[in-house]
């Protein structure tokens, strides 16, 4: 194919995609504008059922009580994605060379603060915005910052302690679900009396798992980047 022909094709592709996307936008915007004025949301239903859920924050109640099955599967998805990453990643993780004084001192000040914030968010999730995902995200961010500042994942924790932390959230969810079923209820339908405790335990386990899974995903990406800089070392590694 000659160059002018390719240019024409590329221009045609750009024009065609713009046209198609404009049509999609028009359709979606029309659907949005023609929504009924009186929304039929689930806010009223959630508010009516909130007292028996064990959480005063409606979002937490939805995540861990009404739609607990969703959250269970979500942690399973996280774990599956990490397993897929483990099968594909390559290269070795080595500590960052010369992170710089600013990053190093900033990380040593910020990491404890982030730990406290994560603990607060986890605890506050019962009654205010917060919860396992936010706390896990902040914990993972603290870990990412520490790794970038030069400290690696401790070698003695990378065997079974890491794997226990990875599956803690999912196994806690499954254990609670099965225990509730054995007690004569439906899967993940908590008894109203112990719901607050169950939700707290589940959130703690989920926070640990989410934080470690997200951190390990980041470290896997970092490995691949490190292995690209010296290709000779990485080619023969599985």
């Amino acid at each position: 194919m000659t160059n002018p022909e390719r240019d024409t094709l590329a221009r045609l592709a750009r024009f065609g995609s713009t046209l198609a996307v404009a049509l999609v936008f028009a359709g979606l915007a029309f659907a949005m504008l023609s929504l009924p004025a009186e929304p039929t949301g689930l806010a009223a239903a959630v508010r009516a059922e909130l007292p028996g859920t064990g959480a005063a924050n409606p979002v937490t109640a939805v995540l861990l009580n009404f739609r607990g099955y969703d959250t269970l599967l979500e942690i399973a998805v996280l774990l599956l994605a990490l397993l897929a990453i483990w099968t594909m990643r390559r290269g070795q993780l080595r500590p960052q060379r010369d992170p710089g004084d600013v990053l190093e001192s900033l990380a040593s000040i910020q990491a404890p603060v982030m730990l406290v914030v994560a603990g607060y968010l986890l605890w506050a999730g019962g009654s205010a915005p917060g919860g396992a995902f936010q706390a896990g995200g902040i914990l993972a961010a603290a870990g990412v910052m520490l790794v970038l500042a030069g400290s690696g994942w401790p070698q003695r924790l990378s065997g079974w302690p890491l794997r226990v932390a990875l599956v803690l959230g999912l196994s806690a969810f499954i254990c609670v679900g099965v225990a509730v079923v054995l007690g004569g209820q439906e899967f993940l339908a908590y008894p109203a009396s112990g719901a607050a405790t169950i939700i707290l335990v589940l959130e703690i386990c989920a926070t640990v798992s989410i934080a470690v899974i997200l951190l390990d995903m980041f470290l896997s990406v970092l490995r691949g980047r490190a292995s690209r800089t010296d290709t000779t070392a990485s080619i023969d590694q599985p």
Binding site: P39, G41, L42, A43, V46, P58, V59, A61, V62, L63, R67, D70, T71, E74, V77, L78, A81, L82, I85, G131, F133, Q134, G137, I210, I213, L214, M217, F218, S220, V221
Partner: peptide, 20 residues
């Protein structure tokens, strides 16, 4: 409405893992 909010939290985490 808290239900879409819960969906968004779920979606963000899944999007991060899919991106990784």
């Amino acid at each position: 409405d808290p239900v879409p909010h819960a969906m968004v939290i779920t979606g963000i985490v899944v999007a991060v893992s899919a991106t990784a």
